[in-house]
Design a protein around this nucleic acid. Structure first.
Length: 152
DNA sequence: TAGGCCATCTGGTCCT
DNA sequence: AGGACCAGATGGCCTA
């Protein structure tokens, strides 16, 4: 699932998730990718322990994972929603340019620094080149800033 | 085809 | 006890 698809409404997503769960013989994961699917999962809940071991003649059963997996998918959905919200705050050229998660974090960090420099220096014209800041007791300058270069 | 990125599953740990 | 959070494993998709 791409980040952009996370823009679908929460209720729609939850409906899809729980539709999967209620279908014990249901299809695989929502995206069709990934490791063991829920349909497989329902088998795991009934099979013996890994290695085919039996416990004192009893078939030890692992608890069904559907509910736990659904919660985890929902949690991932929320994380991706947060990534999307953060991504929408970062100016890029073009504006709809696809960013990976690590790019979102790195660009957001540098954009915050850039905005901070803008506030400190009172100029929008390459503020990071003017702005000095204290780090570990040492006065530093931001050597290069993507957003300063963009506004050049 | 290799590498990057991602979703999903899973088991462990911590918290309420 | 149940849920939230996390990291590792796995496999699919896409691009250079």
């Amino acid at each position: 699932m791409a980040i952009s698809s996370a823009s679908s409404s929460l209720s729609n997503y939850l409906m899809a998730v729980f539709a999967q769960d209620s279908n014990s013989s249901g299809s695989a994961s929502a995206s069709g990718s990934g490791a063991a699917a829920d349909s497989e999962d329902s088998q795991i809940g009934q099979e013996a322990l890994p290695g085919g071991q039996e416990n004192q003649g009893h078939h030890r059963r692992r608890p069904p994972r559907q509910k736990i997996n659904a919660r985890e998918r929902y949690r991932t959905f929320n994380v991706n929603s947060a990534y999307e919200a953060l991504r929408n705050l970062i100016p890029t050229e073009p504006m709809n340019r696809k960013l990976s998660k690590i790019e979102i974090i790195r660009l957001a960090s540098s954009y915050i620094t850039h905005l901070s420099s803008t506030l400190e220096t009172g100029t929008e014209c390459q503020p990071c080149l003017l702005h000095k800041y204290e780090s570990e007791g040492i006065t530093r300058r931001i050597s290069i800033c993507t957003f300063c270069l963009k506004t050049k």
